[in-house]
């Protein structure tokens, strides 16, 4: 069995330890004896849906995100849509997440047109508005109510349409917009989220879900043997305590209050 990962814009969208997500996918597959290949596809490089099983897009600063948005629409968009239709996994974090929606409306300047793979839109409320920054904890039905931990840092407020459901419900932190307690979006095998930190190392169940889904798109149903995730669980618990209101994080100077 082989897991073929496609890392989109590794040089451009690599803001929040995004590489950690790729490292985690590689390690967790190889620890189970699954071969892994990673294709890096920067601006200008074309992609083919049938060449990969899991597509990853990270986050970037405004200038980089604009470059990526243009390339995503013109060069890679059709193949990514086809991949999503074929049940391949697409995971997008932060800036990449925004680009999978219909559009991103910045504080100033023109809209960035997204791929529309997820039924959502993102608005930046203006240069004076505060960024949504801090440790975040959500619970996800997708994982049987288990929690995901991460860190978020975004100015844009994302709202979902009826065609997407949230990845999880915010227990501590801001999530998509700081108001409706929704975090991330899921539609079929396309996943978007503001959680970085990076996302996958401290959330191994989610990493495994993505690996299994990606493999299933080519090899049929697979069952991944369990790994010793004691250290992952320890780090998950510590980060959750840091995020949770009433936990150590909330007493610190400058810590964001949940649902502010």
């Amino acid at each position: 069995m082989e897991l073929r990962i496609c890392h989109l814009y590794p040089d451009l969208l690599n803001l929040y330890g995004d590489r950690g997500n790729i490292i985690t996918l590689i390690r967790r597959a190889r620890w189970r004896g699954i071969d892994v290949s990673v294709a890096e596809r920067p601006v200008g490089a074309s992609i083919a849906a049938e060449d990969c099983d899991l597509f990853f897009i990270g986050g970037g600063e405004d200038r980089q995100q604009r470059l990526a948005a243009e390339d995503l629409r013109v060069v890679k968009g059709d193949a990514l849509r086809e991949a999503a239709r074929a049940g391949k996994v697409v995971l997008a974090v932060c800036g990449g997440y925004q680009l999978l929606g219909h559009y991103y409306r910045p504080a100033e300047g023109e809209d960035l047109i997204g791929l529309g793979l997820l039924d959502l839109a993102t608005h930046h409320p203006g240069p004076g508005a505060r960024r949504l920054i801090g440790n975040i904890l959500i619970e996800s039905d997708l994982l049987g109510g288990r929690t995901l931990v991460g860190f978020e840092n975004h100015g844009g407020r994302t709202r979902l349409g009826p065609g997407a459901r949230p990845l999880g419900r915010v227990l501590a932190g801001f999530g998509n917009n700081g108001e409706d307690r929704c975090e991330g979006a899921v539609s079929g095998s396309v996943f978007g989220t503001y959680l970085h930190g990076p996302l996958l190392p401290k959330n191994p169940e989610f990493a495994d879900l993505l690996i299994a889904r990606a493999l299933a798109s080519r090899w049929g149903d697979v069952v991944l043997p369990p790994l010793n995730d004691a250290l992952e669980a320890t780090a998950h618990r510590a980060a959750a305590a840091r995020a949770h209101p009433g936990g150590p994080d909330s007493r610190r100077e400058g810590a964001p209050r949940a649902h502010a």
Binding site: Y16, G17, D18, R19, G20, F151, H196, R252, G254
Partner: peptide, 15 residues
């Protein structure tokens, strides 16, 4: 540490 002066986001460890 992840206090204000360190940067509260420790995702950089993965870089």
């Amino acid at each position: 540490n992840d206090l204000t002066a360190d940067g509260r986001d420790i995702s950089w460890l993965w870089d």
